[in-house]
Write a protein that binds this DNA or RNA. Structure first.
Lengths: 194, 194
DNA sequence: ACCATTCTGAAACGTTTATTTCAGAAAAAA
DNA sequence: TTTTTTCTGAAATAAACGTTTCAGAATGGT
């Protein structure tokens, strides 16, 4: 009974996410958010909560989105190695194209240190992504697509750290060719030798 | 003629730097800064300028400090390889001990994207540090301490990216052993084989 | 149609923000 | 000592901040 919400919550959170993504947590004002979400202040406070709670929803939504995309990409490729290559090269493209950074990384360095909830969310998401990548690498090893000599977990971690490094490089230097080169180098280094 | 400044500018900027370092740019208020710097508001505005200018001074001071420390460490070691090992393992220790992040990295992801001055400062500093590390690696290669097979510049970049990755990992998981392990692994991977 | 409930819009809340102002204290130069 | 310049301290400014309030519109259930 009573009136229904006039807006789709998920959709509205995504609009807010884009603002946080672009400006960062502290530089984003409630006014920015209300404008972007196209809903009323009180609706926002009634249905989602304060700025911090909204941010948590946004981070959560971001995490799910990134994970979902990665899984879909992997599912569309024929082999584990192909999936890895696709994920890596798409990440390089994404870093170059998007003028925003990566919300996850930005949040780690701006917010996570002082916000336990966010830290736990990102930590868990990091674990999930790491496991996903490790499994992919392990499958490629088992299929004989890449060498067994390396440790799959370590390799996965190395790949993920590289993503952050590429973004760091691209923010500073704005050189897309360099990012592409680093991605190619990474792909080559996991490919079978010879 | 006229009165002299009652405070040491450099020293005062360092106090401000520590606040920015801990809280980040946007989360730091002028009140925080005035309190920490122990000078008056108007003295701050008269001698340094507004929040943005003060921040630029802080970043500049931070960059100089980091670079100076690295050079000193290298000078205190007997060989280029020893210098590299010292810099890497000290960085790991520093990441674990300091509850603050790295001001440089934090700033890249929070501010640099929207502040050209900061971006240029960090980009230049990055180049200088990269050249420093590349030269160190090249020297070690020439001295036969590490293999010639790898590209010195790429190796330097890989080492620097790793630092960011370690901090990211430590913020999320707070696991000092893991950071130490990654540092050991990195050191081993640049050491002569066998 | 009616009631109960819930959402909406705009205004108002009290803080905090970054920055400016200015009278007066301090000290270097004459 | 006087002059002149500069710095200092506290108060004031206006705008922006996150959040709350509440009358009234809207819509579900009965």
């Amino acid at each position: 009974m009573g009136r229904n919400l006039e807006f789709d919550k998920e959709e509205t959170v995504k609009k807010a996410m884009n603002v946080f993504w672009e400006k960062g947590y502290n530089a984003t004002s409630m006014q920015d958010l209300v404008d972007a979400m196209q809903i009323n202040r009180s609706s926002l406070y009634n249905t989602i909560g304060d700025k911090q709670q909204l941010f948590h929803e946004c981070v959560s939504s971001y995490i799910d989105q990134v994970m979902e995309e990665a899984r879909q990409k992997a599912a569309n490729e024929k082999s584990p190695l192909q999936a890895l290559i696709r994920i890596i090269s798409d990440k390089a493209d994404w870093i170059i194209e998007s003028d925003k950074g990566c919300l996850g990384v930005k949040t780690i360095f701006e917010v996570a240190q002082n916000d336990e909830t966010v830290r736990n969310m990102l930590c868990q998401s990091n674990d999930v992504y790491l496991k996903f990548m490790t499994d992919l690498i392990q499958s490629a090893m088992d299929a004989g697509e890449i060498e067994h000599s390396e440790d799959a977990g370590m390799m996965a971690e190395y790949i993920m750290i590289s993503f952050t490094g590429w973004k760091q490089s691209y923010i500073l230097q704005g050189n897309p060719i360099k990012v592409k080169k680093m991605a190619d180098f990474l792909i080559k280094s996991i490919m079978p030798k010879g």
